[in-house]
């Protein structure tokens, strides 16, 4: 494997290979040595958390990073094409990690340069490292990815993270509960894919009473700005806030996940329960990104 651009490119076997290497790294059974390797972190839109996670991952495996920031995927204003910018950077670094608001930017970069490219998010399209770390977190807490009951709550219409998660989990025979306000439902093209693969899903509008049979509840933020009417927001908001009191009667293996940052969709009184997993999830992100960089740089013998 040379690049990591889209979950669409990965087979089930490849997904499981990423899990395996991340686990070996976490357990200290594989200690990658990326000394002398430089990762170019190209962030054409701000994302402090993703940047921090990648930089941490690269440093923990002995490598170094340089960062280039910008507001757009192009340097056209300076008279240099995007392709030229990428070619130049490829002369300095061993791997490019790219975040861009432009959809398909990472795919294009992978066609232009000879060094590996990792997509760290391209607009509303893909964020494969997030999907892989989510899967790794699910695997760690459940011991398997197969036959799980997964609830996904919040903004299901615009949430790139939940789209990738649902797509990626589809290989592993899950049952889904989609919990959202009616106008933020899962898009038809995602549901069509699920129907095609014979994957069961339910669409619900309340968290209450709907989580006791779940193995995983993946919560995402509903942005106020999505509502035309603030009054509507205030009305539905409460239905998508997870409170400690709602966790009575959940399964023993139940875990709550969230891509972070959260606002108030998970009450802080959930944090100290055995079900909260979102901070460990962020930590898993570092192991997974160490695994991704190591694999792409040929560091697994």
């Amino acid at each position: 494997m040379k690049n990591l651009i889209s979950m669409r490119d990965l087979s089930k076997k490849e997904i499981l290979y990423f899990m395996e290497i991340a686990e070996l790294i976490e357990k200290g059974e594989l200690i990658p040595d990326m000394k002398g390797k430089l990762a170019a972190l190209l962030f054409f839109e701000p994302s402090t958390r993703t940047h921090f996670s990648f930089a941490t991952a690269m440093k923990k495996i002995g490598g170094q990073t340089i960062t280039m920031r910008g507001t757009s995927g192009t340097s056209a204003k300076k008279g240099e094409t995007f392709a030229d910018t990428l070619q130049t950077i490829a002369q300095y670094a061993e791997i490019i990690i790219m975040r861009s608001p432009v959809e398909g930017a990472a795919r294009f970069a992978s066609e232009v340069v000879d060094i590996p490219v990792v997509n760290a998010g391209d607009g509303a399209n893909q964020h494969p490292t997030q999907a892989l770390l989510d899967l790794y977190s699910i695997m760690k807490t459940q011991g398997t990815l197969e036959n799980l009951r997964i609830g996904v709550a919040g903004d299901l219409k615009f949430g790139r993270t939940v789209h990738s998660l649902v797509q990626a989990m589809s290989e592993f025979h899950p049952k889904f509960k989609f919990i959202s306000p009616s106008f933020l439902k899962m898009p038809a093209y995602i549901k069509d894919d699920l129907t095609e693969k014979n994957i069961e899903f339910e669409e619900l509008s309340e968290m209450t009473d709907n989580i006791s049979d779940l193995d995983i509840l993946y919560v995402t933020r509903i942005q106020k700005e999505r509502f035309a009417d603030l009054e509507d927001y205030e009305k539905v908001k409460g239905s998508y806030i997870l409170e400690k009191s709602m966790l009575k009667g959940v399964k023993k293996n139940f875990k709550v996940m969230h891509p972070l940052p959260r606002v108030d969709e998970i009450s802080t009184n959930v944090d100290n329960t055995e079900y909260a997993y979102y901070f460990q999830q962020a930590k898993n992100g570092v192991y997974m990104r160490q695994a991704i960089i190591t694999i792409l740089l040929g560091g697994v013998k």
Binding site: G73, T81, F82, V102, E103, F108, A124
Partner: peptide, 12 residues
Amino acid sequence: PNPKCITNEERI
């Protein structure tokens, strides 16, 4: 048709 697509940003 996607205005956010790279093919509409760059000459590719």
